[in-house]
Design a protein around this nucleic acid. Structure first.
Lengths: 236, 236
DNA sequence: TCCTATAACTTTGTATACATAAACGAACGG
DNA sequence: CCGTTCGTTTATGTATACAAAGTTATAGGA
């Protein structure tokens, strides 16, 4: 048989899931937006069945909220909610670097250095989009180095709610210098296989993220309040 | 209006989800068992639609594994798999007690003491089932005391794969004395709001669990191998 | 006898149809 | 003018129908 058909067949539900997820994360569907099955199916050119299954998955990830007999809506991002996620992520990020210290291979280490350098080059360009991407990749290298599949998928899940704030938090970090320094410190700690140092650096790293995300949320909420006062329609 | 209709309407998918989950956790559907939609629908008296949605949920929780165009099966419990889960749980359990130290209310503290005492009474009866239940409740009190909803639901998810081994690990703990002591130490640490001590005790607590679960898995695998040698049919 | 090809069957993937509850609105009455 | 009630509409919950892929079994030929 010819080796053709390299691409696996992807069920529509997964395709829909990816599309919806993307749309939610980029803000195309803002928090509070109702997700109506017929409408979505119409838009994506599929029937309700795959839509429903995709929504079930998004629901378990926390990205959408179901109200029985009422339907699905994009989950609200509350300060409490985000704070809860960050609290868990802090513990897991620390676990990640600790495990990476124990388990990273020389290949992984080389990859990590490349990711660090790539991040620094991205910072030099001052292109937020590129910086954000390099940042994510840097963290992914560490996460993968743990070799813990459950941890990998959890980190993925927990990074979703923060996705919308990445640009802000990158802009926020006083000229990116902090980010570069923090990344370097983390790499050094892992290189020396020093879990304590790595944990402490990773903790600081996410604490900084936390500060800037929380500030951002408060700003948004303030804006909303002002808009409400001026009678502008707000997202419910 | 009369206060009637206290019970909320529960969609079939959730009902199915609960039933399947229970069946998997109790071992009625052992790892490797295929979950066929028509068959399940027939058995539970519902159509395929709610079954499929329930399976999607179980899939994201990791309890079932999907093979495209082939169907769903109860996830295999591998040593690696369980080890990954325990590694994450260790970090989160520690986070739980640390947060509990900061945030537990006096009501919560009272509840925790009750749970501890109830556990000790259960141990006195030597009834594994009751001990397991009291143990779960004890941990739940701590988890709820964190006030972190995301953490609560994650702990729930991560405790599922271990569910089948609870009895073993309880029997294992050299006459339950260790468990009682460990619980006491954790309560004391939280009472004194000493996060370091609490973390260290919680770490030790789950390390013990890990040892006994891992031993149990190895035993099972050994048994399987022997059965295979004797030609007995094994679960695939 | 063994291999291959094909046909029947099983099971998932997807679409559609039907039932029911919630939301909206208009008409009616106070 | 306000509130209530009763249809109408809309969207979800559930069931079923149809399509396609995979599996198994069987028949035929080397």
């Amino acid at each position: 048989m010819p080796k053709a058909k390299e691409e696996d067949f992807l069920p529509l539900r997964d395709s829909v899931y990816n599309k919806l997820r993307q749309a939610i994360l980029t803000g195309e569907y803002p928090p509070g937006e109702r997700l109506m099955e017929v409408h979505l199916g119409d838009k994506l050119g599929v029937s309700r069945t795959p839509i429903r299954e995709a929504i079930r998955m998004l629901e378990l990830e926390g990205l959408v909220t179901m109200i029985p007999r009422k339907g699905a809506m994009v989950s609200q991002i509350t300060e409490k909610n985000m704070s809860d996620v960050l609290e868990v992520r802090r513990a897991l990020d620390i676990l990640c670097v600790q495990l990476a210290c124990e388990r990273i291979t020389s290949d992984g280490m080389a990859e990590l250095r490349r990711a660090r350098d790539n991040f620094e080059r991205a910072v030099a360009t001052n292109d937020s989009r590129r910086i954000a991407q390099a940042d994510v990749e840097f963290h992914n290298v560490i996460i993968r180095a743990t070799g813990n599949d459950r941890l990998i998928s959890l980190e993925d899940s927990l990074s979703l709610p923060m996705y919308r704030y990445r640009y802000e938090y990158i802009k926020d970090s006083s000229g990116h210098d902090n980010l570069v320094k923090e990344h370097r410190k983390i790499v050094n700690a892992i290189e020396k296989r020093n879990p304590e140092a790595a944990a402490s650096e990773a903790g600081e790293h996410i604490d900084n993220q936390r500060r800037s995300i929380m500030r951002q949320i408060r700003l948004e909420r303030e804006e909303e309040t002002i808009n409400a006062l001026y009678g502008k329609r707000t997202i419910r």
